[in-house]
Design a protein around this nucleic acid. Structure first.
Lengths: 223, 223
DNA sequence: CGACACATTGAAACACTTCAAAGCGTGTGG
DNA sequence: CCACACGCTTTGAAGTGTTTCAATGTGTCG
């Protein structure tokens, strides 16, 4: 419901000055960046795929709303990760900020130009697509064939690895977000986490702050 | 287990003579073709992504085996459809013939060459990737958020549409294949189909031959 | 400090799975 | 051509995990 495409709204500042090569690792373009508030829409379902985005800080969810009102989250993106790169002409999912976030973005046309000049750029986008596809397929496996405990364990492990926090995980998303991502209810997510805590696998000083006490056991869960 | 990459085994005949432009719609290369027996492997998990394939007849499943021995099917490909095109350097799933099938194939390098000469080829591969991604995402939704009845209904509708049979569906795959695709057990798939028949939505002269009597009701199921 | 959203917990209901047995159909050998 | 046999499919009954509904608890922000 929020603003449409990002480049159509005012940009409070230009990352191109503050951080040249912010997309650096692989794309090497100097993007604009903008702040987003929690739940603010970055692009909508059906929006044209005009830009590619990078999370500078915060976190992003890729969502779709079903006809019966329920919501599905197909992916999360964390600081340093790039999203919004899809083959089709229109997005099939919306992207929303989860927390206060800073997002960098470049126009696709710019990337395509750059790819013509520098084959490394094209390869980088290709690698990006490969990584997205891999995550999508792993996630499909998880949704189709894993128990609640396996899903939550896999989620924690992946989140911890992608946040690069060794054992202290600052969970940026709500239980509802996690549930919609894992294909469970918030109650099941909550109960599973509580059980993990009882079993000594994790500690939860608060809901958004999880400490992994026994990573090996969590990893063993998805046998 | 089975043979490695296709072009490394003898080809009984060359489709390039029998059917120039067999890949025609969109790729426009003249591929080799080969017959496969049921359950024969077309490529294995971890095989290099050297070729792109097209189903001429029969059907193909894209499978992955989990550590606990269970199997997951991420996609089916039916006559006229193209598969095996992935961004990464190695396949993450195996491809197997479901029934007796004829498969055409071209080397990726050939396609890349062709794309340099003819931008239409590049666009066609792009469209292909977009369609695969769309199906993958729809399937993820189905696995994460749909009941057994909704899954089976969606499967029947999609199968019928992709086979281009108006209401008579010749199901090429076993109940086990369907179950592994829908994230259910074969018993649940079977029971659901039986229930559909009792409700007058379909008729099943035999397990592999389904007649859709009330398509609207089936479509309405995934509300 | 109070209010509100978010998270946890409990109990009952439900959908799907599991285990087990019987039915069907297709293909082969007698 | 029929009969048997094998694999696949269907059906049944019990068990289990997840959801649903409802209430209580907790953390955070004004």
């Amino acid at each position: 419901m929020a603003a449409g495409l990002i480049q159509e709204r005012p940009h409070p500042d230009f990352a191109s000055q503050a951080r040249p090569q912010a997309f650096a690792d692989g794309i090497g373009l100097t993007p604009l960046s903008a702040p987003y508030a929690p739940n603010e829409e970055i692009y909508a379902e059906e929006d044209a795929t005009k830009c590619v985005y990078k999370v500078l800080s915060g976190a992003v969810r890729i969502t779709r709303h079903l006809s019966d009102g329920r919501r599905h989250i197909s992916a999360f993106y964390l600081p340093g990760e790039i999203f919004g790169f899809e083959p089709g002409a229109a997005h099939r999912f919306a992207a929303e900020a989860i927390a206060d976030s800073r997002i960098a973005m470049v126009r696709r046309a710019q990337i395509e130009d750059a790819a013509l000049r520098d084959p490394g750029v094209g390869r980088a986008m290709w690698d990006l697509a490969a990584q997205d596809l891999e995550r999508l397929q792993e996630h499909m496996l998880l949704l189709g064939r894993r128990s609640a405990a396996q899903r939550v364990a896999a989620f924690l492990i992946e989140l911890s690895e992608r946040l690069n926090n060794r054992d202290t995980v600052d969970v940026p998303m709500s239980r509802t977000d996690i549930a919609d991502y894992l294909g469970l209810t918030i109650e099941t997510v909550s109960r599973t986490l509580t059980q993990f805590e009882r079993d000594g696998l994790i500690e939860m000083p608060s809901a958004r702050h999880i400490f992994i006490k026994n990573r090996a056991a969590l990893e063993r869960l998805d046998s």
